[in-house]
């Protein structure tokens, strides 16, 4: 077990350099001094223990971190860049796994929170969505922990929709397949009637005239046109084949 810490300014700068060096071909070091030395990070008090467990999916990561961080719970916790940077470095081997013999870290904001793209942080984004939507966020959080995922990517561009509880429950009701514990096939399609992209387009129009934030999932669903009917009842025949 490891005591939870936060990176300071020097630690975050060192993390950035570390990411740059890995992109340039340097070897990954699983236990960096940056994580544990007071020059670069400070312990969280009272002590909270974190274990280097396998985080298979973003949902698993969100659930684990929600339980670990419960003593620190506050509305601003999702925005604690120092805390989330430390956690990203702690779990870095899983957040940037070796693929094709090489480790290819993504942009810095996937590991070091940026206020411009807060949802992109692989751990803080998942944590924030789970905290807000609970299990209804499973469509968004089903990808592996190192991936952003198509659903989240599409909703990220209408980021105000991500905070709408009723709408995310609609996304769960329409696109989650309980039989496979994965999103329904075709839900992330560009062209499929009733897909998530279509839902976003329809909701943008509805938002002009309806107080969607004040509506429950069934009330929002009742406003949707008929192209979404098949998704309510299962997988549309055109997708099922």
């Amino acid at each position: 077990m490891t005591a939870l810490r936060k990176l300071n300014r020097k630690g975050i700068a060192a993390f950035r350099e570390y990411l740059a060096s890995i992109r340039a071909g340097a070897e990954f070091q699983p236990s960096l001094a940056v994580l544990y030395v007071d020059d670069f990070s400070t312990p969280v008090l009272p002590r909270i223990d974190v274990e280097p467990r396998a985080l298979k999916t973003k949902l698993a990561a969100a659930k684990y971190l929600t339980s670990v961080l419960e003593p620190l719970e506050s509305p601003s916790l999702s925005a604690d860049a120092e805390l989330w940077s430390w956690l990203a470095l702690f779990f870095f081997d899983q957040l940037s796994p070796i693929r094709g013999g090489k480790r290819r870290p993504r942009e810095d904001y996937y590991y070091i929170p940026s206020s411009r793209r807060p949802q992109r942080h692989l751990l803080a984004g998942a944590y924030g969505l789970y905290r807000l939507h609970g299990e209804h966020a499973r469509v968004l959080l089903h990808p592996s922990v190192h991936q952003h995922g198509r659903f989240l990517f599409d909703l990220d561009y209408r980021r105000d929709l991500l905070t709408n509880r009723g709408l995310i429950e609609v996304v769960d009701r329409l696109y989650w397949n309980p039989a496979t514990s994965r999103p329904k096939r075709g839900a992330a399609s560009d062209n499929q009637p009733g897909s998530l992209r279509r839902l976003i387009a329809v909701v943008q129009q509805l938002d002009l005239n309806y107080d969607l934030y004040g509506m429950s999932a069934p009330e929002i669903e009742a406003l949707l046109p008929s192209e979404f009917e098949a998704w309510r009842n299962g997988i549309p025949p055109s997708v099922a084949g």
Binding site: S115, R116, P118, Q119, G128, R159, D160, L162, T163, D211, Y213, G214
Partner: peptide, 15 residues
């Protein structure tokens, strides 16, 4: 009819 004020900045929102 109800009156609501919504505050928003990027992904954060309050009503």
């Amino acid at each position: 009819a109800r009156i609501y004020i919504e505050a928003q900045y990027r992904t954060s929102y309050m009503r």
